[in-house]
Write a protein that binds this DNA or RNA. Sequence first.
DNA 1: AATGAAACCTGACAGC
DNA 2: TGCTGTCAGGTTTCAT
Length: 311
Amino acid sequence: MPELPEVETIARGLARRVTGDVVDSVWLGQKKEPLKSTASEIVGALEQRRIAGVRRMGKHIVFDLERSSMARAPSPAKGWGFKKVPASGAKLTQASSALDAEAGQGARPTQSPPKAQWIVHLGMTGRLQVCEAQAEIEKHTHAILRLASGRELRFVDPRRFGRLSVSADFDAGGIEPLDIDLERFVALFCGRKTPIKSALLNQKLLRGVGNIYADESLFRAGIRPRRRASSITREQLERLFIAVKEVLKEAIALGGSSISDYVDDDGKEGFFQLQHRVYAREGEACLVCGSPIKRIVIGGRSSHYCAKCQK
DNA sequence: AATGAAACCTGACAGC
DNA sequence: TGCTGTCAGGTTTCAT
């Protein structure tokens, strides 16, 4: 569900709320889909680390971790007595199995600790909650980080398209659409026979643009989503370049779009959906010319456009 | 190499 | 009420 503006909103909210806190212990559910790294890699990278910051890369949320100054004894292996086991039937996992594997064994007295990052991709339905430890555990909760402040950071994801991993130097691939310059933007689409809509969704080119903002950007640029990327004129690409940045910035300013289940970490909804000009408006009148908005499928994704305004 | 279709999951909603 | 079919803001995998 979340695209760049939603992930940016969520990352900013998390940065405000959990930066400086320390991960005391980690619980992971039994479903395997959400984990891209092994459970022990994730637990080992997170436990007893201080959250130095939270930021966005493409649609990924990156937690920068550093060794906690107040490193304590490893948390008790028995875990922390859950009041209610999530409906999925998950159980407690190893608490500190691979704790500090790289630092404890190497015995290298260097003072530059290895970088550690916790990477979260929300997929379609993923959410990160910051809540009190006693708050009820929602169905589809796949990970819980108990924080030294007494709160918990929880990953909830019904559809399980989200992914958790740890890394030392994560690279999301692609280029940030808000940072790219015109020449590099134009070069991305050069010689590509794929529809421009599909190229915009390709995270190896631009990272962070998703279905809503691709449609909205193409509408503002006056380009039909099925046009071959290579067939688009320089002038149109310049308009698209501006439109993509404009749409993303406006959406971030409004806290993202929320249509059904997206809410930010405070539980507040974004408001950009009120600005949608084509997305999810099939059959409704184009706000510019009044023609009915069309919906077609491109690369398996529904695509909305105005046949009169977009060529 | 690039493109497109299918697969991966659950939940919400419309229609019968 | 309950069943069926469709759809969903994303990515990966597997044939062409």
